[in-house]
Each structure stands twice: as structure tokens, then as C-alpha cells.
Design a protein around this nucleic acid. Sequence first.
DNA 1: CGTCGATTTGAACAGTCTCAAAGGATGTGG
DNA 2: CCACATCCTTTGAGACTGTTCAAATCGACG
Lengths: 256, 256
Amino acid sequence: MARDDETGLMVENAAARCAQCPLATCEGLRQPPDELRAWIAAFRQGEARFVRGEQVFAQGLRLRHLYTVLSGVLMRTRLLEDGRRQIINFMFPGDFIGLQAALDGEMSHAVEAVTSATLCVFARDRFFELAALQPRLSFDLTWLAAHEEAALEEHIVSLGQRNARERMAALAVFLVQRGMDTGLAPDGILPITVTQGQIADMLGLSLVHTNRTLQALRRMGLVDWTLSAIRIPDMDAARRMARIDGVGASAPRPYI
Amino acid sequence: MARDDETGLMVENAAARCAQCPLATCEGLRQPPDELRAWIAAFRQGEARFVRGEQVFAQGLRLRHLYTVLSGVLMRTRLLEDGRRQIINFMFPGDFIGLQAALDGEMSHAVEAVTSATLCVFARDRFFELAALQPRLSFDLTWLAAHEEAALEEHIVSLGQRNARERMAALAVFLVQRGMDTGLAPDGILPITVTQGQIADMLGLSLVHTNRTLQALRRMGLVDWTLSAIRIPDMDAARRMARIDGVGASAPRPYI
DNA sequence: CGTCGATTTGAACAGTCTCAAAGGATGTGG
DNA sequence: CCACATCCTTTGAGACTGTTCAAATCGACG
């Protein structure tokens, strides 16, 4: 039990837990070979737990560790000086946190827990040493970075070209899809507490308009998004509304 | 001289040219160690040239090669089925092209030459072999992916939170900055042909409103953006208008 | 029961869009 | 060297999507 000087969060020594990593049984993820898993376990320093709503990392923070999401959902947000806030993306189990900050010095965004969440903690320098020894790890790292980039690309398309309804449908489809891939929404319902204010900050809409759009989608039977869960009664119709063309299915996602 | 079956573009055998790589003298870039440069030169298959306006890769294409920008400026764009178009980002010398497509199968976006441009061509599989042997290359790859992600993050903030004037100022500052870093705008003026229609598609604005906003910024003496060049008379004021908080200076950018 | 966060509703307002058309540039062919 | 075509920019005016301000309602919780 030690106090992480970067963030004040609790870190437990829990290296042994890799053997029963909850992500090992997750169908949506590509499992690392045993040898790599052993290496990763050896380099893992512990876990950090956060409750819903807690700030995990502040914007501008200098990270001395790398993190991955072990359980739960988080979001990364960017704050402008005048108080405007943009939610960049949500993070699901298996996602990497802090890569850009580790390479570059400062976090360009803050991270906040959307649900209660657990992170795995790795020492930054030792992690990169391991990546140099294990091409597969390095490859997975690149894979994740490239796919996060693709997700942001999709978000840019939403913000730039889609109207409020399309945006919201696209976001709901995206989140539920990721929830299903990571085992959080086995039945197609993603139990996750997101306020309308947060949806607004993600989609670049006002709170009022977000509320009205949400109601419209619910009335149309496309997306049923409450404070505590996202449900998509008619996935095909929702995808049409969102103008999502690609199939969305891609190679299985690796994790660290 | 061979014809690339993927794109029909011309490929010359020009491996020897790495010795006089034009990027080697670029101040904004971090130079690879000699040993790595030699390896890269050995793996390089040739060059591909494009004229302004030419489509480099179509959306949905399956790439069998990896590419980097040797000279010129390109953009990547995403097309929706109903004709709406979103420009995701611009690409400058040293940038990587096709990483996501190489890992994932299909290009999620198209690539188009904004100025006449030259690309370096690498065989995908041999490239990843090399990356496994050369941790530094792998590290640089990750660095580039993480920073492209940071650039998209900034763009998301623009689209989600900034109004038309702020967006346009932010884009102009970003482009001129990148131009200066890559030696394309030594005097702070970036000579690059971008139509107002392209600006509109990048910022998610209509053509008409783009025109009016452009005029307003010009009248205010903040940004002078013509068809053939971007000039920022008052950089500090432009940054204030754009609400760019961070210093923007980061570690030197590696290139391949 | 009172408080606090979240949602909902109404109404006026503003930023941006669409439609329409005119006005420059630039290049090509005759 | 002119005439025409094409692409880009500019301007006007009305319509609409989404914003802002304000206030009421709802629900969970102590």
C-alpha cells in the first residue's frame, strides 16, 4: 500500500492478480501470448481504484506512470480557460491511459471516472524497456494508438458533419458497441451513468438541446438513453439515423 | 520504374536518395541515429509523386504498403454516403500514412494531395519486421501515432466548443505552426493552396459562413488567409482569439 | 421534509445554413 | 488575343438549427 505522489490515489500491490485478470475471459479482446502476459505481470506495479465521478488525472499533470483500464469506464475531457468543456472520448477496459503524456510531458486532457473503475499501474521507463524487448507489446501499443486515432476521427466526423440527432445516435451506437466488446453490455444494454450535461459536452451541444434531442430519439424508438443506462431498441435504425456506413467490425482489439 | 497495383501511382527506385533526404536538414524534426537511417534506407522501396488535387488513396482501399510524407502537404478526408465531407487533418513532411489501414485492413479515409507531394514507400510486412528489430523505430511510430491523436483531440475541441471565428483562427495557427516546424513556412507565411470550400469542410461550417468569417478575421488583422497562402499578422492575438492555452511547443517530432 | 443534482419545458434570440445570383480569377481552344 | 468554361469567391436575404435565459418539476437521499 503506497501513496502515488502523482495523483494521491491508492495503489495496492496486486501483481499476483494478473493470473486471474478479468479481461482474460473477455471475448472482444485478443489475448496476449502466455509469455508476454507473464512479462507484463512482472512489470505491473499495482492497481488504482476510483469511484464514480472522481477525477483520476488533472489536465496538465506530469505522469510518471502508464496506466491501463482494468475495469470500469472513464472519460477524458479537455477544459478551456473560460470553463467550456469538451469530452474527447470514453475509455473502456483494455484501453491505454497516458501514452501521449508519457512521451510528451504533460497530459493534454483530464481523466475522470464515469463508473467506479480500476486501473493497472506500470512504471513508465521500465514499460518502454519491456516494449523494446517484446515486439508484440510494442505492436499492440501502436495498434491501440492507431485505433484510438480512428475513434477520434469518427468523432470529428460527427461534430463536423452530423446534426444533433445523428450525433447522438452515433454516440449511443459507439458506446453500446464498445460495451458489448468489453463485456460490459452482454445483453446490448450498457449500464453506465452519464448525465445529459455530459452528453452535451461530448457532442458539442447545449444541455437544453441535448435533452430535446434525447426525447426525440426515445419517441422514435431509436435510442433509449437514461441516466443509468443506454439501450438501443432498433440497432439497424439507429445506425441508419447516425449515418454509420462501415460495418464497424474490425480485427480483435489487443490489450495490455 | 514500376506501377503500384494499389493506386496506379508511379514508383521510382530511389533508395539512394535517403542519403540526401531533404528532411535531414529540417530543424523541427528529430533526426534518427545514423544506424537507423541506414536501416530505413534499405527498407525503402521508392517514391511516389502526386500533383496538387490528385487523389492519393481512396477511402476503403486496402493498403499493402506504408507511406511517409517526404515533401508537400496532403489532407485526409472522410466521405459520407450522402456526399457530406469532413477533412480530418492535414499531413506534413515526416508524417506517417496508412498505419491504421495497415493494421486494420481498410483505409477509413481518403488521402488527397493539397500541394504537389512526394511519398516514401515501404513494404508493410518488412517494415514491421524492422520495427521489431529496431526499438527506436517502434518508439517513433508510437510517438507519431500518439501525437496525431493529440492533434485530433485539439480538432475535436475546436469543432465541439469553439465558434466559427475561434475555429478558423485555431486552424490557421495550427497549420502555420506545422509549416514552420517542417520548413515549409520559414518566414511565418505558409504558401499552400486551400480553397474556402476545403476550410469549410475542415471546420464543419458552410462555405458561405466560412467566407464571411474569413473576411472578419482579415479585417481584424488576425489571419490573412488567401487561396494561395496563410499569413498571421499578429500571432499572439490570433492565439488569444482561438483560445489556445498551451504553449504548443513540445518535444521535437521524430520522422521515419 | 428540505436539499441537491438532474431533467424538463417555454420562449426569445443568435449563429449558422440554405438558396440564389453575381463577380473575379485562371486556363484553354479557336 | 479574344471568348468561353471552370473554379473560386463574394454578397444578399430568409429560414432553421441550436443557444440562452428562466423557471418548474422530478427523484434520491439524509
